[in-house]
Design a protein around this nucleic acid. Sequence first.
DNA 1: CTGAAAGCGCTAACAG
DNA 2: CTGTTAGCGCTTTCAG
Lengths: 353, 353
Amino acid sequence: MARRRQAVTIKHVAADAGVSLQTVSRVINNEPNVRPEMKERVQASIDRLGYVPSIAAQRMSGSRSYLILALNDREKTVAEWRSRSGTDWVDQMLLGGMLTCAEHGYRMMVELVDTHNDHVERELSATIAALQPDGVILTPPHSENRLITDLLASKNIPFARIGSLEPGPGIRLTMDDDHSAVMATERLIELGHKRIGLIAGPKDYSLSGWRIDGWMRAMQAAGFNTDGLCARGDFGFDSGIAAARTLLSQKDRPTAIIASNDQMALATLDVARELDLAVPDKLSLISFDNTPIVRFTNPPLTAVDQPIAATISHAVELLINKSRKAIPADPINIQGVLVERASTAPAPKANGG
Amino acid sequence: MARRRQAVTIKHVAADAGVSLQTVSRVINNEPNVRPEMKERVQASIDRLGYVPSIAAQRMSGSRSYLILALNDREKTVAEWRSRSGTDWVDQMLLGGMLTCAEHGYRMMVELVDTHNDHVERELSATIAALQPDGVILTPPHSENRLITDLLASKNIPFARIGSLEPGPGIRLTMDDDHSAVMATERLIELGHKRIGLIAGPKDYSLSGWRIDGWMRAMQAAGFNTDGLCARGDFGFDSGIAAARTLLSQKDRPTAIIASNDQMALATLDVARELDLAVPDKLSLISFDNTPIVRFTNPPLTAVDQPIAATISHAVELLINKSRKAIPADPINIQGVLVERASTAPAPKANGG
DNA sequence: CTGAAAGCGCTAACAG
DNA sequence: CTGTTAGCGCTTTCAG
């Protein structure tokens, strides 16, 4: 294949405009110290020649790479893609991330990294050496992986930690899971439910704990007991089956359940059917995530929408600006909303179905 | 922000191994003319120092960028993401594309481009100048946009056209839509259906036509009439409603319908409910795409699975090898499979329901 | 088979 | 405010 070289370079523009390379460079980078008329002349040449700076060359000479890297857990992501589970986490990341990047002349690139791998550091170092991103977005469980955060910090690369409140370097953003759990719980209480169960997520996700906290606080504020009403899952369907069975096979079983993600809510739906518990008449169900599939289940699920796109978009903005401005020290919380569908209803009158 | 420079460069490796830069470069690129023992010594230094070549520098000096660009239609993609419609086309592209790229040390980057825009050329030129990809993957409707294919051809950038059989430059790959349509039609014929309707896709997608062809051939082979059994949609839900109504409001209405994508199948399901036509007892339904949501509809839909991941993966392989080997002149067809679920059943005995 | 020299396109640092 | 001078890290010549 013929060697492809830049068609029109800064040299051509400089020659065309009759100025030095440096002046052109200044115009490209919107730097001060260029007379308006100069700037205009250069810009005209740029437009006429259709010049676009080579990112490779810019990166080479120590400037920005205009690249934001979004790191996702390889195993989990690939498994979800393969099973076509309907999780649109990556799509929402792209929606928020790509578009916001584009507004600033940046690009977003998705990378998959194994968290549970002793090579994380080597793997990530290699990616960074090869790509030289200007910023990195860490999603759970990477957000709290010290190996990763320390590496990034030591290399002086700005990064955002989604879904983490742990102190340490990096910009912290959450989707306010605590508040979301409170919101879901309070809505159920409003509907007259007293025994509200929670299927929590795995412990290695901080947000699992925050959701428990929110649920528990709302329950206690209403004066309700929470004993035996919290079961753990791992965000997988099978774990949801087990957790739902645990909760629903009790004598004084819950009349409502909040599942920490859609897959576990789906599982709960199956268990309810198995136990002949009509949803929502006998059992109300609220899910987290609000992925596309929950509109098609039977009944469609009431769910807490996770503002993934908005959160990633915000992270990108901060990362890009960070080179210029200060780092926000406090975590940023982006709140989700509760989308009501047909899986929630007033609590059944008697509990002895 | 401090200027980040490559931590360990080819120089360090050369010094460490006691050889020239050039030799290291040869080892990195797996070039001939290096004595095995030399190669080994250099490789040892590379491993010890954890050296990874800077892609920017490689690209700069006229080598590859190790980047494959996947171009999707902006408007459609963003709309699908925003509406959270459950289409996992992009995810499947990433699944096939990213993983295969990774195997070869490449990366895949998704870009959104407006087809229906007079700036396509400028927009795309800019992207190419900035990114310098080693290959481009075009998805419909870009695959048949002459502005785009000509531009790529003129810049001498290898590219793949997914879902296009039109002659011209670029590697052509399809998911064998004709065969898929035949498969779906024959299955319905096997089930005793004689009046099988088709909701076709829009004309600006070649594959819409191929699906019509396959359906028509299968129908004719069985000796069935196709008059009034084909309605057009635009892949959108609303257009599916209209098309389904057209087909189902006839006197001698079809007992089975094949919809050219999931959204239109969903619409057909709604229309059937509206007309009190039980699926699959009164009406069988087969969909194209097999996106995650069709497992959750009521009933779950029988669907033709589109091997997106496999197709993109194949495209990537060809693109990467193209720099070395020959271009496949003939189109490559990757066949999908029919996934049977609960929306298909034997044709009803009498048609006067 | 190996090495030295000459850039790739751009920006930083320093002069004017 | 503008231009000049050095590189960035790597690969391509072209000599040994």
